[in-house]
């Protein structure tokens, strides 16, 4: 895998953070993807109103398509088998609902306001993810 220029990574990160910033200052809400996905699909009804959550969630793939079409086609390298993807998806679905957020809500928004809950959640999911990759690659796979 080619290294990505840190400047491009920073530009991408600034876009993500700017989106969260605009969302807070305009609508007063936290740009959390797991929560808004649950609301947009009518799985949950708490938090952001449905229409607003649906508009945000629809915007995500539109933005992705724009960059892929006009700036850079991303290399998407998936090594996980279908069975692993299903188990991982189930864990991400249950875990983000139980823990009230994911990388965006806790990581980008909660950490930025130094919320103790979000810092605890972010440290926990980062540690769990690092441990999982370590076990998969260097214990089982190694």
């Amino acid at each position: 895998m080619e290294p990505l220029s840190p400047l491009v990574a920073i530009a991408g990160g600034l876009l993500i953070g700017t989106a969260a910033a605009i969302f807070l200052l305009l609508t007063g809400r936290i740009a959390g993807v797991s929560g808004m996905t649950a609301v947009a699909t009518r799985i949950s009804s708490s938090g952001t109103p449905w229409s607003q959550a649906a508009a945000f969630v629809i915007g995500l793939p539109i933005g992705a398509a724009l960059i892929a079409a006009f700036v850079r086609t991303p290399d998407v390298l998936i090594t996980a088998s279908p069975a692993v993807l299903i188990i991982a998806g189930l864990l991400v679905g249950v875990g983000t609902r139980l823990g009230n957020g994911c990388t965006s809500g806790h990581g980008v928004c909660g950490m930025a306001r130094l919320s103790p809950r979000s810092i605890a959640a972010t440290v926990t999911f980062m540690a769990a993810a690092i441990l999982t990759v370590f076990v998969a690659r260097h214990v089982i796979g190694g």
């Binding site: 508009a55 629809i58 915007g59 933005g63």
Partner: peptide
Amino acid sequence: ALIVGVIFGAGLVLSD
């Protein structure tokens, strides 16, 4: 909300 989603999604692809 739509525009914010677009910017967010753009950032996710640009940053890989």
